[in-house]
């Protein structure tokens, strides 16, 4: 999921793959978001070097593409750690102790929101609602949903991933 490739090494193979992605969406009405989603799925982020290529293909300015990439929380300009832990911070989860859980997790991992552990293995992200509001607090670890989350459950996932 998070194949990382620093922007500086955006080589001809990458450009070829990028062209494929763009071509597969060009027929759509409003192709930019689908293109960006596919790019992020491929590289784990939207590399800076991809932006002028997208802009040219869609007849947009680089500023317009940058504006879109930077507007949406999902799109990132740097890779995450190998694993991503997301904790819901919205009201339903707050009512079930999400704030305390977040404090415990941050302390246990030694990192804050949007930060990655020094070994590069785990990134912690907030999320505002996973739609699991009747079984909160909720979390998501590498796409796996966790209802009725607590420190023990979350730690188990993290440890399994690090093992």
């Amino acid at each position: 999921m998070t194949r990382t490739s620093p922007a500086a090494e955006f080589d001809s193979e990458s450009i070829e793959r990028l062209d494929q992605i763009i071509a597969s969406h060009l027929h759509r009405e409003g192709p930019l978001l689908p293109i960006l989603h596919d790019i992020q799925a491929e590289w784990g982020m939207v590399p800076d070097d991809a932006q002028p290529i997208i802009a040219k293909a869609l007849n947009l300015t680089r500023a317009e593409v940058y504006g879109v990439v930077s507007f949406y929380h999902d799109f990132r300009d740097h890779p995450t750690g190998t694993h991503v832990l997301r904790l819901c911070r919205a009201e339903s989860c707050i009512s079930m102790g999400a704030d305390d859980l977040a404090d415990q997790v941050c302390r246990a991992l030694g990192i804050g929101w949007h930060e990655t552990t020094p070994d590069g293995r785990l990134t912690l992200e907030p999320v505002f609602c996973l739609g699991l509001c009747a079984c909160g607090p909720s979390a998501e670890f590498d796409g796996k949903l966790v209802g009725r989350a607590n420190l023990a459950k979350v730690t188990r996932f993290v440890q399994e991933a690090r093992a």
Binding site: E29, G30, P31, L32, L33, P34, L36, H37, L58, E64, G67, V68, F71, Y72, H73, D74, F75, F128
Partner: peptide, 26 residues
């Protein structure tokens, strides 16, 4: 199906339309 990108405001209909068009969800 079109997939959003983590912007809450895109639940507002005009912002959603801009997002669908591939613009900032303003």
């Amino acid at each position: 199906v079109r997939v959003g990108a983590g912007a809450y405001v895109c639940g507002e209909e005009t912002s959603l339309l801009n997002s669908l068009e591939g613009k900032r969800g303003v």
